[in-house]
């Protein structure tokens, strides 16, 4: 374990669902992650905070196997993810919501919702999903990309809840959405936490992150540089603002 990892590792170590150690990643020639260390315990909601270009999205994509050029260690429930293709990683129980939402234009809302195959038993039923996102049920036969931005975000989250994935990776789910929609997504994430989902959230909006997460990791220049428990957030407001440059 690196020094940074030792410093940043809280008590969840023993039952960490996801443990990232010394993660390096490259986009072509450009070296984007320089040894990322963090971990998430089962049932936690954890955010990655940081400025643009700090490597948050790259970290999610590396965990998911979408970025193939990576080194270090990513262990999910005891299985090493480095070297596995993304379809095998998804099958272990990871669900991914990309920043751009990734709603398919040539598929209806229903087809988008049913697209990700079930990877493990125990996903939410369609009934529960419609109860969480009533708008979707009313627009099942519309073209996926005809939905509003907020509805598309809900669809992007809804479709990975069916699959039985236990760890959800959400990349900026509130970006560009109206405050009322942001609140709705916040409520949804809290309900998912109650249901036992583990969530890794990338956020720029730390006001939003503070309302739903247990812990926050701060990223800078391709590394995790600090960790704050949600309870400490108000006491460490000045530090956080310095990190985020707000």
């Amino acid at each position: 374990m690196t020094d940074a990892a030792a410093r940043l590792t809280p008590e969840v170590e023993a039952d960490a669902l996801l443990a990232v150690r010394g993660l390096h990643a490259w986009y072509g020639e450009s070296h984007v992650l320089h040894g990322v260390d963090f971990e998430i315990g089962s049932g936690e909601v954890v955010t990655l905070l940081g400025r643009n270009g700090a490597g948050k999205t790259t970290t999610l994509k590396s965990i998911m196997g979408i970025i193939d050029a990576r080194k270090g260690s990513i262990r999910f429930d005891g299985t090493e993810l480095i070297g596995l293709p993304s379809n095998r990683i998804a099958r272990l129980g990871l669900g991914f919501v990309p920043e751009e939402r990734g709603i398919f234009a040539s598929l209806s809302v229903e087809e988008n919702l049913l697209l990700p195959p079930e990877v493990r038993p125990g996903g939410l039923s369609l009934e529960t999903i419609y109860e969480l996102f009533p708008n979707l049920r009313e627009r099942l036969y519309s073209q996926g990309t005809k939905l509003s931005g907020g509805e598309q975000q809900m669809l992007a989250i809804a479709r990975i809840l069916r699959t039985g994935a236990r760890l959800l990776l959400l990349d900026e789910p509130t970006e560009g959405l109206a405050p009322v929609i942001v609140q709705q997504i916040g409520r949804t994430i809290r309900r998912l936490k109650e249901q036992g989902f583990t969530i890794l959230l990338v956020e720029q909006n730390f006001h939003f992150a503070a309302t739903i997460a247990d812990r926050h990791y701060i990223m800078e220049h391709g590394r995790v540089v600090d960790m704050m428990a949600d309870a400490d957030l108000s006491a460490r407001q000045a530090e956080l603002q310095a990190y985020l440059g707000v």
């Binding site: 993304s86 099958r91 990309p98 234009a105």
Partner: peptide, 24 residues
């Protein structure tokens, strides 16, 4: 069909379809 929806989705964004667990 379901298989067809995989094909259409993979035509648009193969990376994401693979990240859902489909062997693209």
């Amino acid at each position: 069909t379901k298989l067809g929806s995989y094909l259409r989705a993979a035509t648009e964004n193969p990376t994401l379809v693979q990240a859902f667990g489909i062997n693209v």
